[in-house]
Write a protein that binds this DNA or RNA. Sequence first.
RNA 1: GGGGUCGUAGCUCAGCUGGUCAGAGCGCCACGUUGACAUCGUGGAGGUCGUAGGUUCGAGCCCUAUCGACCCCACCA
Length: 899
Amino acid sequence: MDKVYNPQAIEGELYREWEESGAFKAHRVEGKKPFTIVMPPPNITGQLHMGHAMDGVLQDSLTRYHRMKGDPTLWLPGTDHASIATEVKIVEAMRKEGLTKEDVGREGFLERAWAWKNEYGGRIVRQTRRMGNSCDWSRERFTMDEGCSKAVTEVFNRLYEKGLIYRGNRMINWCPCCRTSISDAEVEYEEQSGSFWHLLYPVKETGEMLELATTRPETMLGDTAVAINAEDPRYAHLHGCHVILPLVGKEIPIVCDEHADMTKGTGVVKITPAHDPNDFEVGQRHNLPVVRVFTDDGHMTGAKEKTENDELFASGKATVGEPRVLDCGKYAGMTTKEARKAIVEDLEALGLVGKIEPLTHEVGTCYRCHTTIEPMVSKQWFVKMAPLAGPAIECVKSGEVKFVPERFTKTYLNWMENVRDWCISRQLWWGHRIPAWYCADCGEVIVARETPTVCPKCGCTHLAQDEDVLDTWFSSALWPFSTLGWPEKTEDLAYFYPTSVLVTGYDIIFFWVARMIFSGCEQMGKPPFHTVLIHGLVRDAQGRKMSKSLGNGVDPLEIIDQYGADALRFSLVMGVSPGNDMRFSTDKVESARNFANKIWNASRFVLMNLGDTAEPMEGKSFSAADKWILTRLDETIREVSAHFEDYDLGLAAQKIYDFAWSEFCDWYIELAKVTLNGEDEAARRATCAVLRHVLIALLRLLHPFMPFITDAVYRNVPGTEGTIMLSDWPLCDAALVFPEEAREMEGVMDVIRAVRNLRAEMNVAVGKRAHLMVRPKAGWEKAMAGAGEYLQRLAWVSQMQLLAAGEAAQGKTVSAVSEAAELFIPLGDLVDADKEIARLGKERDSVQRDIERGEAKLGNPGFLAKAPAQLVEQEKAKLGVARDKLAKLNARIDELKNM
RNA sequence: GGGGUCGUAGCUCAGCUGGUCAGAGCGCCACGUUGACAUCGUGGAGGUCGUAGGUUCGAGCCCUAUCGACCCCACCA
């Protein structure tokens, strides 16, 4: 083994071996409860970023932990077609060739899309492998593969048959840039500065001017009413009156509606049912016409659009709620922004603009391109949410599905309880095409599983499929069961559904988690998982979100090249608390890399001492140090396992780190050297057995986080077979726990620390051996008597001399008092008494404070009465030790003063 | 407007159901090549755990208020 751990030398080879050996493959074992995770499918457009890396590490750690525990374990990977994201990329690529979607047509476009998918879709999958993730690649899925597509069609049909999917003219969010509708969840709100324009509308009956405020004056052409509150005394005389819509010259009614808030602005609101969600509702209540003034690409409508619209109505094919289109005349063809300016100018010229107030407000933007969203009435497909939300709320409230950390339950419930119908149709080509057909002759709508050939109503064959595709999240929502074979009744589905844990970031709870839950409840009758493990975002070293535009993203692959996958993995979990964002820095990776190296070298030491011998644990008589580390190991196994069960991987990693470095390396290996270099062959073999035993356990505990290095080392440990990933998770063993001896060893270690401390304080070079006199306290005689070699080795003592109780140390010495003993080191002329007195004085002050604290506690009647007896005893004992120590220190100081 | 997170050593953060919790990593200082490891070892300095109250025998840990940083949700014209 090399002196320094070199990840590059082993990672690729090891991963290939794992995969080819079938170690990742899940096996159904009847009667055994499986552990299942479905991977959040990354977009095929994606490149591996730190977010994926962290998400993957958490899942892989859990997966490896459960696999080692012996659970039939499945981590199912896959990718998402990412309808809108992919389509945008392909359109962009075509633009470079000077082509548009329309140029190549739907068929041509899809050909390109699939070609693109085949070329780049596997990229992120290959990258994921470099993380060391142990997914079952034999079960890899894609949201648009045959099975998943079948599931989509099936769900669409079922929901349609139950009346839970409908098509209608409703208010939706329109992205003029992507030219498609998007769902509420896909709208991001950004604070923007704008203005409040106060407009004046003349009242037809009275001739007065009605003042109202708007942030979007360009919509005024589509106003079909003005609303006032029925209770508003200011406008009581206007009930039943009309205003003349400026610029358009059309007469529109003044309606009374609760939406008009008397306390806000002038209490008058213009109503544009086609372009404002609130106004749409008002329009429905008052049966107002819906007049559209924006085109799909964000321009004002004109003669052309109006003609088309008129023809639609003339043909009788207009559907319920179909908006009418206005020819905006001189504004036609302007962008909405241009129109806003022009309209305000024209109104000002007419004296119809009052004050203009600046304001900042939240403006909806598209989560893909950040273009301002235009609310519009549009004919789209929707999922009726209320009936689906019920069970999805219930299963979380009942605890059948738990969020970790728990606080996200609230986020989820709040959203689910207020969710509105989900707009699922997208005016895109890449995705699952909506399984609906329209009869050109009679207008019949046919939703079907197979392409229909004749209209069931009129019998004609003039059928055309809906042009739109489904929201990409529609298929993601089915992921936990579509990937297992649903709607077929597969063995995998029966065995692995519901899955166990879903691991994802808090940023997609609404997009994905919520929708998987209601889909699972509806289609499977069971929620898709029992636990949702939510993690935070990976930020850059300054705490900023990693983003392409900022260019502050760190490429996980580069980090792997430089430090190794294990180091990256460990840096992404250690000390991270669930649900919180973390800052990524190479400092953290470096320290993880150093840890890996520490493991490597500790292993090298152990292996060097073992040679080829797999020394068994049975029949050995262990040293104090052996018993101590075994006891600590037991405790560590308990804690780490508990943290895994709680999904607190950050703490699990921390515990392993501390045990490995601070206890196994810093202490046990050093202590073991005494025995290993000693004459006692039986003791040497016992220690070898322990070194091997603890190393194996440590490697296994660490394996979920650092799979490569642990397996590489494990294979070199004598007596092991195969890969560590299929070996057993360590178990606690009562036969290997020695609380009393461990406590004694701690006492000895404390003495070692005290000696080291003394020497350092006195500036005695480490290499320089010192004579040590030890006067054990009552009960510590035996432990201290056996500590000589440990002290020689670990505290650079030349010779340890035991003093009997009451026996004085000879000569000039410096001293220390620990729990187990008093210590004296003669330092001859090296130390002057004054210096030592000063040092001891400082120590006495600190002990004095401990005593005061203890006395205060024990002097408190409330404490004695109410605190647990065990705690009181503990405090008493502590106080006793401290008082004893104080007495010794005082005596020692006096002694020095009299010398 | 509603909900949530964070404020602990110079920096980045851990601290489980209140009682060795005042911690880790990095940084800093001193010393050090004892054959696993300088990607290391030993020792050290440094924080009244944002502020003010309260509950309790006892509070970074619970409650209330307050200041500061931030996030999510929400149809406020």
